[in-house]
Design a protein around this nucleic acid. Sequence first.
DNA 1: AGCACGCCGACT
DNA 2: GTCGGCGTGCTC
Length: 741
Amino acid sequence: MPGPILRLALPSPLRRLFDYLPPAGVPASSLRPGVRLRVPFGRREVIGILVESGEHSEVPADKLKAATELLDGQTPLPESLLRLCQWTARYYQHSLGDTLSWALPVLLRQGEPAEARQEQVWHLAEGASADDPRLARAPRQREALKAIAQHVHGVPQALLGKLQLNRSSLELLLEKGLLRIEIRRCNAPPAPHHGSWLLQPALTFNDEQRIAFEAVRASLGSFHPFLLAGITGSGKTEIYLQLIQAVLEAGKQALVLIPEINLGPQTLARFERRFNARIALLHSNVSDRERLDIWLAARDGEVDIVIGTRSALFTPLKSPGLIILDEEHDASYKQQEGLRYHARDLALVRARQEQVPILLGSATPSLESLHNAHAGRYALLKLTRRAGGASAPRFLRLDVKSRPLDSGISGPLQQAIAQTLQAGQQVLVFLNRRGFAPTLLCHDCGWTSQCQRCDARMTLHQRHSELRCHHCGHVQRQPLRCPDCGKVDLRPVGAGTERAEERLNTLYPDYPVLRIDRDSTARKGSMEKLLATINRGEPCLLVGTQMLAKGHHFPRVTLVAILDADGGLFSADFRASERMAQLIVQVAGRAGRAGEPGKVIIQSHMADHPLLVQLTEQGYFAFAEQALSERRAASLPPFSHLALLRAEAHKPGQAEGFLDAACQQAERLVNEQGLGGIELLGPVPAPMERRAGRYRAQLLLQSNTRPALHQLLGTLLPHMEQLPGGRSVRWSLDVDPIDLF
DNA sequence: AGCACGCCGACT
DNA sequence: GTCGGCGTGCTC
């Protein structure tokens, strides 16, 4: 029997629930977990979510307030979603209320009804035609009919004005039985036509694909994690498609997660070509209203396939059948602010909770996932053959020690590029650094383009005559003379994509150079334009950042040049080599697909670095084994578990002082609770101590076991909320950080 | 977080 | 004289 005390999760960083009395006149039976209630909170009103009911409250009776309104009379939030959020909040040591704020559509947090809205949609009636004799003397009606006929899925009421259709012609057509009105949900994907789920026949599998497909299909209906490790072009997507087909045939829904890049439309198009099904795409440009409508439709089973980026993980499904997470190694699955969750890890939890199989796919799986596969936690499915018989690219490590670099491009590389272009083929030049040059230097007095607010140099963007800080976004005009000594001898140091583009233009004046990075594709449609040019297939040069490495296929590229592999070999970040290897393999995978074998030239000052040798001579999986054994030896993840406490403050030393106090607390707790195998590393100033005008520090907690780490965090955080100075210091916890900066 | 309260510096 | 800076306290 539910008691009179309601325990609510509220949108607040405070890691606890708040007790309320039921709103006046609302029967206790309608107060089920997951309903939203409007409540007074401090001096404002917020929307909370009922987590549980109880008989008693610790809170003194005179402080207890009553909720003002019950928002969800009929349908509470799906229990499965609530459960996932509770797990998430506990794992990431985050407030449940705030976790729900990240997980739910904004409009639900603002009190919008959690019920589907209906709209009227105008359709052409069966057998209706513009040649109907009754329209011979009704030109306006005939035009209106033609306009409606253009829209296969009908015209929603709201769009009539935009199409300049007036109500009266439509009414007359309706009376004549030439139009009909359908009532359907707003923003719901169009209902499938009757008949088969397939619009296009499935492709034929090779043996490896069949084995992988059968393994996952056999596990439909129960929790089972799979790691699909398939080289670029080995046909992973076809496996996804045929598994989804099996899910649709079983009357269930599929959730497909993709990285945060422009792959959404491409993926959607491919799915829409194959399936006669209701497909919804969730990405960052979907409006709040649409997002809510899709959320509701998925919850009600009115969508068959949900495709989306990180946050789509929290889309409720009425009858989930399968979760697919493509490019599972991609860092965009990890949220880097607020609730710092990893969608890949949470997808696993969700799959287990909902008893569905989950398929993680990648050509370059993360070391974490490979480790899980080795440990038997995931079934490993390998695809080693390229479909269509294209051969794997050949790698060439080019030692640039003591070679002159011309805007980052060595002599031998210049020759290789020239040969490729002369052979009528395309070249891809990869450089993971935007702008013209990372620094501007006064040759006379040594001044550099230091950012005012960060411990970093501002990057020269020559095309816009600007210096930009890539860390805080500060922009200023490019100085013509040195701000310190006034001399006119400012020199760009180092090279970014803009400089490489300029140099390549000079070196190969007969061929177009296309730059692809965040700056060149910022305007809508510019990426499509660039891709269209590339796909025409004429010889040209592509220069760009990791944007080039993801998803798109360039069949006419036969030479890939990686200008600088050293960052991945020298960095202090223990994940740098893994990321570099993934990037190299992913970029290499863009080349040589149409029968012509691809060549990949990697410039490095450490051309015989063991990891680079391993990667280029024996492939990604050999590299990964080597990297994993190094991680094991150093007790780094996945052989240990990390949590990172970050703090920042306006005054120097303040953040460090705060973390010092936290560290002492943590030490005490470790001793009190006899927690072994935990190390507290720090606090230390962050690798870039000053950023956006704030001084930053961090404290790393490392543990041999996950339970010990979580036990420590569970007791440490409540103390930290009460630490003095907690208000002038902004701090946050990152469980399983993926970069330590 | 959000929002109020409260106590000290340069401005209409 | 006050407008407003951010330290500190609280939210069932």
